[in-house]
Design a protein around this nucleic acid. Sequence first.
RNA 1: GGGCCCUUAGCUCAGGGGGAGAGCGCUUCCCUGACACGGAAGAGGUCGUUGGUUCAAAUCCAACAGGGCCCACCA
Length: 862
Amino acid sequence: MHEMNPTYEPEAVEADWYERWEAAGVFRPEYRPDGEPFAVVIPPPNVTGVLHMGHGLNHTIHDVVIRRKRMQGYAALWLPGTDHAGIATQNVVERELANEGLTRHDLGREAFVEQVWEWRRKYGARITSQIRRMGSSCDWTRERFTMDEGLSVAVREVFVTLYEEGLVYRGNRIINWCPRCETALSDIEVEHVEELGTLTHIRYPLTDGSGEIVVATTRPETMLGDTGVAVHPDDERYRHMIGRTVTLPLVGREIPIVADDWADPEFGSGAVKVTPAHDANDFEVGQRHGLEPVVVLDTRGVVNENGGRFAGLDRFEARTAIQQALEKEGFLVKVEDHRHSVGRCYRCDSVVEPYLSDQWFVAVTDLARPAIDAVKDDENVFIPKRWENTYFHWMENLRDWTISRQIWWGHRIPAWYCPDGHITVSRIDPTSCATCASPTIAQDPDVLDTWFSSALFPFSTLGWPEQTADLARYYPNAVLITGFDIIFFWVARMMKMGIHFMGEVPFRQTIIHGLVRDANGEKMSKSKGNTIDPIDVANEYGADPLRLALIQAANPGQDVPLDMEWVAGARRFGNKLWNATRFALRHVEPGSVPADGGYPEDPGPVDAWILQRLGEVAADFDTLCDEYRFSDAFGRLYSFAWSEVFDWYLEMAKTMLDQSSSANATRQTLGVVIRDLLKLFHPAMPYLTEELWQHVVGDGLIAGADWPVVPRVDGPDGMGDIQDLIAGIRRFRAEQGISPRQPLTLKVAPAVDGWAADVITKLGAADLSAIDTAPESGHTRIVAGSLQGFIALDGVIDLEAERSRIDKAIMSAEQDLLKVERKLANAAFMDKAPDDIVAKERSKQAEFEGLLAKLREQRNTL
RNA sequence: GGGCCCUUAGCUCAGGGGGAGAGCGCUUCCCUGACACGGAAGAGGUCGUUGGUUCAAAUCCAACAGGGCCCACCA
């Protein structure tokens, strides 16, 4: 084995292990042919996208889960894939075209779609190579894409089946329309933001000239499409007007005043204009009263020919123009500020229009019921559980899902129309109308919502609708790991589709993680400019340090603040682990540590102590990981490694290695402890641990190694007291300003010898002699539990400083004692507190009294 | 309008009825045989406020204050 560099260099370590792992087939579940299946699918990122820190966190959690399961012997499958991301991808390519002064319409549908495929060929590998760079152990032989042939078959099968079941239908409804993207959106693709707008009060004169009615609206431009005015049937102010008509200002249309409960007498004037084509509520009011919808905006949000003299104006220009015209013609009562929420497109941030159009829908209520029950029955469990409430609330209040999109990039809707308007929905492309056999049929131009295909991901990626071996083995998936932001978009829909088509939940547990925030706790966003590129971080600090920094903050449901300082800290840990290994390799023959087992038969006390601790910590770590409490799990492991193994055990081992009687057991212990630390850290820091594994074990790959099984070992009693005594000596030194080089003369009572004496001598830098009782004078006392150390003061001490040190100790002991005594003097406490608590207080009392007595005695001798 | 979460050391956060914790930052000392990307020691907190339950509250309950998030057909 070559000499190791004294410094951990992530860029060197992370260079080529990924290819080795892949070549060895470690990432395939077949690597553990007899293992129980444990499958998880990636939340498929946009095929033309780039990795952001949210992926960084999500993938780190995935990889920690999957690597640990693999080491535990499961047939672990992390199935990777990408999403065609309809609107998002189309927007990107359209923007590119716009740079050349072109629109998609200049190219035509076929050429445009080909252009997007070209884009995908060009950039599709970018995000997957970034996923690899982060060390994610995906099975790339099973990689899928939502538009690949197999998944497209699945999409079509689902659509047609749901249509046949009456759960997919076509309807003319008010939907959300983005005038920028020129497509329908589902309800959850609209983001509502509270904004300051205006409430315009308009005078609508009664046609018979007998008066007027005032309506209030936030969107005066839609008055062009008004076909009625509604008032509440019980509203005394307007009762006499019901059934009469008003003449619509600027337009001249005569429209009726109707009575409808929807009108809220408390709001505005209590009378509401009814625009059935441009407001969902108004549409319903219109239906109840036979008011015709008049569409006044086109697909780009520009006033159409129904807008008379305002035709051709953009909707916002029209708003201003109409307000001015109303004022000029005396119809404007007032305009007041009004806070209300405005819906915006989640892809382009444009203000969304409620828009009447023909669209395809999924009737979701029947699909939702079993998906709700499955979670109620714990067939699927959310972690943290509180997210189930969010899921239930949403699932119980669903409106039908608008699935058609008026874009070109996506799964084309498998519906054809003949000139008579018959609809033919088919698994294979038809050549004639299924109803009238007309050979003149045209396919619906629309495509499906991207989320329609991702809803099928847990089974479509396994080969469905074919009954493949993978489908049988890996469905349901074990878990799904994702952020709360896509519970509605993705999780809920996978539950619905999975149960409907597979008869079983798609995954047993839903692990919800938080958002990555910046060092100040701010949400990362491009507009704020506080985003951090995970690949940049990996290149500067290493992928392993980034992964460790992320996982160390990743408890279920909790946001993860990320500061480059934390990443630098994680790299320092890597350096520490690197050097601890280097130290071990000075005493352990490189490549000599077995991949498993190899624990010493007869460990010395110091070795037994660290082995016991290793076993305890490994057990805790496993429990916490099984609960997905990675922050706690890695926090525990990290502090064990650093504060116990590196700071104490390695230092003590130096002593034990010097002695022929203990050297062999310590060498062996050193080797297995370092090896097991590498294994335990491997899921978080795969590259570094793999590199070190090659030096320590030198056989196979740690990525394919078995998870540690640490035997039960009983450590020696009193290790804590010894550590406290050493710390006390060091504190005495620090407080007295005594150089660490200056040896102190120390007596210890009760007498210690053997390994304990050796360790105290070495780590306390003291010449130690054992005694049975306290020396008469000339010494100061360090109390460490049942141990007392007496340091000879001759010529080493500043008396004043020592008095003040002891005074401080006395004061603190007095306060502790007082607290305990008060408790024990409290009759209610003695009466009602459980016995073990009382006993504990008593022993504390004795402890503090003893300590105080020793300290006072010592103070008197100074 | 409905719901959820948070408030503990300068910062970011653990903890969760019975002696206030970690990391980073800060101060002092030390290049001691792997590591100065290191070691040793230390300073720093009436656990948001007010009530209540309890022998005992940072921890449970209520109200309030501040902060964040989600949902809703808020003309």
